[in-house]
Design a protein around this nucleic acid. Sequence first.
RNA 1: GGGUAUUUAGCUCAGCUGGUUUAGAGCACUACCUUGACAGGGUAGGGGUCACAGGUUCGAAUCCUGUAAUACCCACCA
Length: 886
Amino acid sequence: MSLSTKYNPAETEDKWYKYWMDQGFFHSEPSSDKEAFSIVIPPPNVTGVLHMGHMLNNTIQDVLIRKARMEGKNACWVPGTDHASIATEARVVAMLREKGIKKSSLTRDEFLKYAWEWKEKYGGIILEQLKKLGASCDWERTHFTMDPDYYKAVIKVFVDLYNKGYIYRGLRMINWDCEAKTALSNEEVLYKEEGERSVLYSVRYKIKEKEEWVTIATQRPETIMGDVAIAVNPTDERYKHLVGKKVLVPFINREIPVIADDYVDKTFGTGCLKVTPAHDVNDYEIGVRHNLPVIDTINEDGTLNEKCELPKFFGKDRFAVRKEIVKDLREAGHLVKEEDFTTRIGRSERTNSVVEPKLSLQWFVKMKEISVRAKDSVERDEIKLHPAKFKNTYRHWMENVRDWCISRQLWWGHRIPAWYDEAGNVVVAETEAEALKQYKIQHPGSGIQKLKQDVDVLDTWASSWLWPIEVFKGFNEKYFKDGRIDRSQNADLKYFYPTDVLVTAPEILFFWVARMIIAGYEYMDEKPFNDVYLTGVVRDKLGRKMSKSLGNSPDALELIGKYGADGVRTGMLFSSAAGNDLLFDEKLCEQGRNFANKIWNAFRLVKGWEVAKQPQPEENKVAIEWFESKLNQSIGELEDHFTKFRISDALHTLYKLVWDDFCSWYLEIIKPEFGKPIDDATYQKTISFFEAILKLLHPFMPFLTEELWHELIDRKKEDCLIIAEWLKPKAFNEKLIAHCETGFEVVTQIRNARNSKGLSPKESLSLSVNGVSKEVDQFASVIKKLANLKSIEAVSEKPTNATSFLIGTREFYIPLEGKVDAAKEKEDLRKELDYNKGFLASVMKKLSNEKFVSGAKPEVVEIERKKKADAESKIKSLEERLTALG
RNA sequence: GGGUAUUUAGCUCAGCUGGUUUAGAGCACUACCUUGACAGGGUAGGGGUCACAGGUUCGAAUCCUGUAAUACCCACCA
């Protein structure tokens, strides 16, 4: 057969993916005879496209799921997508804007119709891209967080938490766009990096009780009519005497107290802060701490209202008022100082107007009580984080957990199931009819027939935190009763929950992972997963985060086209220890592709041999015995890496096994002379080694390995590698491996000698050893073949006219009549001598230290003594050889 | 500002409970080789006072303290 010298991924990838799908290898149903192994995918944004982060993340999941499948487990990887309210809504809004349609000109229903159209059009793209990567997801179980059932589940949970008393309404500062008259999410507020120029005004307020003034600094003098206190730092000696006194607000002369609060920075401005809870987030929090009233002086459109008490400002824009009031303050002698100042001002992404902090009623989840078990389970390692360093981060967050604001001022998402009457009385219920029913019970005789539903939607995480439960339909009314899920009737949940591993990015440890754990304990009475593998962030090679605006994110599908899915997968895993950022460089993919090609060519070599019934050469027997041991040693290492989720290390182990041990040593030993056949016994063994390697590599490189699995020997097509049996580590001969390594070292030294003497590998040499060496004896045939030797003989006399090397304490000589450069030889020997003398000195330093000899463990001292003896004997031998050279 | 990490070869990183030759790998680099699997290859080689300063110890890349840089998360300056 004639095979290309290069592996061509394009020919195999689609073919095998389709075949695996057709055979239903990815699908799994609960079964009684198999152990379950399940993973739920971190659902990517429904309208997203595959980026490098997804590639890394999903490759790791696929490696884990494929290995489990081969281990005979019932492997279930549930895929799906997230509605991602903010991101998706922003994209739909942008799309409409391009068409010249403003969101504000649409009704909610009209907007949602566009959004759903958008979702239908782009929603499946990312999942199709995952298939190109080789992801072996159970596609029959694909979910979307706004599927009808999922939607219902989210609503049910809201109602349930409300009824349990975990959900409440509270005031919160939101970002308000006065021009668009709409709330903005944090993501829609932009800050100029260099800040904006502004003026810091120092304004004095009169103390009521005496003829003394207190001066505060503010950027927003137009808000002073909303002041409810003056705050100073409790440790500030300058103002201690004023705490508890009353101060008069300029112009309106309202009395406000002077209070002490740690928040105040003594060194900023005058050290006095005016407290305006309605118009500043921090002031609001101070207000809460000190039980201060809230005076909201600004309307939705940014004009001042009657609460500011000064009729000349009613209905005037806040910036116009600022100008006027500065003038008034100056004239009245209140303005002490004006200075230029650079500050961060938030502007609306939509209108570029200055964002106004505005208090509004939002929905919150009380976190303290509901998160206790989630905190403890990670603390006690019931859920293990990999790498474990994230435990600290997790603990810190859970101990300082804040209540979770779950309402968002958007339309795309799960609409909050709260219903209001005209007076603002609220009922929470799954449906309007149910809400009305409850309302009538709570307000008998009101006669009201129509309630208005809350306009906001829920935070995206308030739906995705149910993901590991709801992908198995846990919140269906059949199982979800009285605030708990009874899984005894739900076969999927009973079998697949808790899932085995969650693979995700550390930046969403709190947003998502922690909350899934909370939901798991609250609704399933059990953790949602056993292990959490936190990947790193994929960055470019300069260490910058990959982003669209920087344009430094390579096109994932292009990469797959260029290097093959297997090449990209292994390339990414080569340098991605858990929790470490991955500095992505296309070179990694190149390395992955080269690896695939190396395996392909090893296959070409083996496949090209003619096989004959003939005696098995001695070196082949040795090679087989050695590789068998090496293989089993590697399987053991591999297993160890997997149990510790060191996926990158696992790949390195295989890379070495294949490239160095199998290709560079094993195949080179058994390779028959050109044109000659290989003996049957060796060939059969080689095929079985190759099969073992393909199995071990399959989770990492599914396409190439499946292809070769079928090419290597004739087998039925349905007899696929993807479902072949995984290898268990077996005992191996450690001594043999060590001895063989010594043999390889002899080969290396001979090659080295050839290199430095300029001898062709084709020129046959002789080797002399002083004394008998078991290792050399055992591997004589191997050494002869690999180093191209005529003979190996034991001698007692040191040969002259020879170059020499030392392995352990044994001397080797290669007689080279007339080719020895004595000066060069001496120089080399001297270098080695220096090294060994230095080494001996370092050992002696330890051994001559009495405290070491008496203090260290006996084994350690023994090792040092052995080192000393070895070094001494080496030095002796080197010196002798130097003398011999004259 | 609070928290959590990181700092080892030109680059990316291993080095797990302190001792296992005077610190390893991959990539990059250098020299040589190459018509019989693979130049996307082979053989060999050079390259590091383990960020800095102290301390603990018979012994520190490894443990402790401090300093300096960097990254991420949280909170954000009137």
